[in-house]
Amino acid sequence: MSKTNQGYFFEDYHVGQSLHHATSRTLHDGDVAMYQALYGPRFALQSSWDFASPGSSLRNPVMDDLITFHTVFGKTVPDISLNAVANLGYAEGRFLARVESGDTIHARSEIIGLKQNSNGKTGIVWVRTRGFSNVDVPVLEYVRWVMVRKRDTAAPAPEAVVPDLAKVVSADALHIPDDLDWSNYDFAAAGEPHRYGDYAVGEIIDHVDGVTLTDPEHMMATRLWQNTAKVHFDVTARPDGKRLIYGGHIISLARALSFNGLANAQLLAAINAGAHANPAMAGDTIRAWSEVLDTAETTNPHVGALRLRLVATKGAAGALRGEDGKYLSDVLLDLDYWALIPR
């Protein structure tokens, strides 16, 4: 009997199935340094131990929210997307607590939807994942859906169950850290003067800079999160003989680029929706732009929330869909999220 893990195929899942993912991972300052080296984010709260109002506990190191996301996501790959064709989208994501150096992260998931594709070779799996630190502190939850291969194309199709997901996380449901004190926020140290009231719904922000993707960087990043999906490493796993770049790598690069114009959007609060619109490969040069979709006040009088669309593209800022309503071929990522910003 084989002792190796071949991963789950579409017919191995059933709605209501619970998965407790191995292996827990303890995060350290080294993860922060590696993240900085890979993506170069300049958001002050994650870059400076001293960027906070006097007396705030946020003077301790603040780990980038996407480190938490990638770590939890990576835990799920052997059980959810090892045999995936593509990671399709996200919904109902919420960042629930701050993760600090020394915290140990683990993840659990529940299968909430299944639908076999018409070709009979693949199916869509919807999964709700929750990440925890130090045994039982919830730090992150989100839904994603993945196209997964079937092991046996003759296996019967399960009854289709497509979950009804919220299009937007309600602003009332956003987690605002109790100790987030921005009453004396230092805009000069943050890098830009723009605050909550300076952004208008419908505004388009071109983040200007570009990054050319390379195989060594995205493979190192994907290994950092212990993401074992074959398509990111093995050129024989795809018919075109290319390594597919992990979608989370594009998310982090686009988020880092968004500093130019959104430097004060310091913390991620929620992921409302997301789509990896087209595949990214080494050699592609990506740029990013954002659209302000909504604004909301929070329970903290010094903190506002911006609902933003973050788009990573090989094309022009502001261009998203064609006349047919489909994503343009240059668009790689369309991410709808809430960010916290000083008022």
Rank of each mutant, 00 (worst) to 15 (best):
D206I: 15
D198N: 11
R195I: 05
D181G: 03
M220S: 11
T212Y: 01
G197M: 09
F187E: 07
L213V: 14
P216F: 10
D209E: 14
G210K: 11
P193Y: 11
N227D: 12
D209K: 05
G197S: 10
L213Y: 06
I204A: 04
E192C: 08
P216E: 14
H207Q: 09
H194D: 05
A221M: 14
T222F: 05
V211D: 01
V208A: 08
L180V: 12
V201Y: 10
M220A: 11
V211K: 00
Q226E: 03
P216V: 09
Y196V: 02
A200R: 12
E203N: 04
T214Q: 12
H218V: 07
G191I: 01
N227Y: 03
V208C: 07
E203R: 03
T228P: 03
Y185G: 00
V201L: 02
A190W: 13
M219I: 13
D198W: 11
T222K: 02
Q226W: 05
L224E: 02
F187C: 08
E192T: 12
G210E: 14
N227A: 05
A188M: 14
D186Q: 11
L180A: 04
N184L: 01
I205C: 03
N184Q: 06
Y185S: 02
D181P: 06
G197R: 08
Y199S: 04
H218R: 04
A200C: 07
Q226N: 06
A188C: 12
A189Q: 15
I205A: 04
A200T: 15
R223H: 04
P193H: 10
W225Q: 12
D198R: 09
G191E: 11
A229S: 05
D215M: 05
A221H: 10
P216D: 09
Y185H: 03
M220I: 13
W182E: 00
D181M: 01
A221K: 08
R195A: 13
A229M: 02
Y199E: 04
W182Q: 07
D215C: 04
G210L: 13
A189Y: 08
I204F: 07
I204V: 13
Q226H: 06
A190T: 13
M219K: 10
T214V: 09
M220Y: 11
E217S: 14
A229V: 01
M219A: 10
D181T: 07
T214M: 13
A190N: 14
A188P: 12
D181A: 00
F187V: 03
M220V: 13
H194N: 10
N227L: 05
T212H: 00
D206M: 09
N184W: 00
W182Y: 11
E217N: 11
Y185K: 05
D209S: 12
M220K: 07
